[in-house]
Nucleic acid binder design. Structure first.
Lengths: 222, 222
DNA sequence: GTCGCAATTTTGAATAGTCAAAATAAAACT
DNA sequence: AGTTTTATTTTGACTATTCAAAATTGCGAC
């Protein structure tokens, strides 16, 4: 059975490859799992020996079929646990990520299934990230972000792709959560600033970087 | 922070010392944590260095105050998780122990508290073992309540821990007094409802809060 | 086409936890 | 008291994971 360290590496390779077949650079992986680059290299070689990843020295890593299977299972656990923490235990949106980080390696497949049932087989977690299905399917619809979408049009937030506590707290504070309706009232690329407005409230300024983390879709659509 | 290995050793020392001040022999501890005796010795010496246990070479181990604190917290997690798995996820009684063994090291104190509240601050786990309080008190003679006991089993009411007139009248009206035989036919934590049935009569619905005030013991026991 | 930088890999060493097997001490029995 | 049994500790070695720092390589700038 994969140790939680192994699970962690695989999960981050999956997250960083972002659906594509592209190689994930070592530096990025090392940063994601919070180790020095040398450690990532050592670990990746070990994972390659076990057939969980393909390592192209000096170029990067990619999951094998088996590695992807494991990674998706971990991701499913992570996101279902987050959903549970928010919807059942009513925990603070911003805190659940770190909790789930621990729990994802401790919960069995049976508990996972029962949690899934208890929650009504949700499709996304509270951040709007898709939950991989039991069979390992991960819906990968692409959305516009507040940094790229058209302005002055009614939108709904579908997802927030940033897990840091600071960011999530900021988002929560301004009510920028999946489901929220809003529109972009102004976007100034040179100033690096995007202004959004909720139907009710007043203008909220965002950096382009932050805006790029918030995925939206046109209001009134499946 | 104590690693999960450390937590495990401490928990088993607590369990094996069984309330007394007696020294736990190394062999017993080694067997409990499933390592060879030499490993237990090595580990216990390390724990002693950290002030978590007192080691009397060739005689045994005993928890220090700090060690006991940690051990009780782990035990509390273990038993609350078991309770959660049985009562909320409806898992098989026999399986929950191994699950809890993993989860007890992954769940934070905050999740623990919320779980505790969700379950109605139970005094015992589904096996009837007492759950240490948040302050680290472990009562030895604890009864299960209608909110925490196993279902579909013959029980006798031993005590009603609520003195308000309304409650006592309600209890009397339904014949829920010490000595009464009954069993729990259904328990739905999410709905906050417990249904009991006396041998003679029909179903009586109780709130979890009310059920938690009624102490029971297995029928036919001292 | 060569140079230099940034990313990667290698090397050597550390920590936590484990086992097998030899050494030792305590307890138990003549 | 002397010997056997049993429990415990010691020793040496191994795995998984990590870091620091030196060595290497790929690639883009010139």
């Amino acid at each position: 059975m994969a140790t939680s360290t192994v699970e962690n590496y695989l999960k981050h390779v999956l997250l960083l490859s972002d659906g594509s077949e592209a190689l994930v650079p070592m530096g990025a992986l090392a940063a994601a799992v919070a180790v020095v680059p040398g450690t990532a290299t050592t670990m990746v070689k070990a994972l390659a020996d076990e057939g969980l990843v393909e390592h192209q020295p000096r170029h990067g890593v990619r999951l094998t079929g088996e590695g992807r299977r494991v990674a998706l299972n971990v991701l499913r656990k992570h996101r279902l646990v987050e959903t549970f923490l928010v919807h059942v235990l009513k925990m603070d949106w911003a805190k659940v990520h770190d909790e789930a980080e621990q729990l994802e390696h401790a919960i069995s497949d049976e508990v996972l299934d029962r949690l899934d049932a208890l929650l009504g087989h949700p499709q996304t977690d509270p951040h709007g990230d898709p939950i991989p299905s039991r069979q390992g399917k991960l819906s990968s619809q692409v959305y516009a972000t507040l940094a790229t979408c058209i302005t002055e049009r009614s939108l709904r937030i579908v997802r927030v792709t940033e897990q840091s506590t600071e960011f999530l707290q900021f988002a929560e504070q301004h009510g920028l959560q999946p489901g929220t309706s809003l529109r972009v009232t102004d976007r100034n690329l040179t100033a690096g600033l995007v202004t959004v407005r909720k139907p009710t409230g007043r203008a909220i300024p965002l950096s382009i970087a932050a805006a790029g983390k918030i995925l939206v879709e046109p209001e009134g659509k499946g």
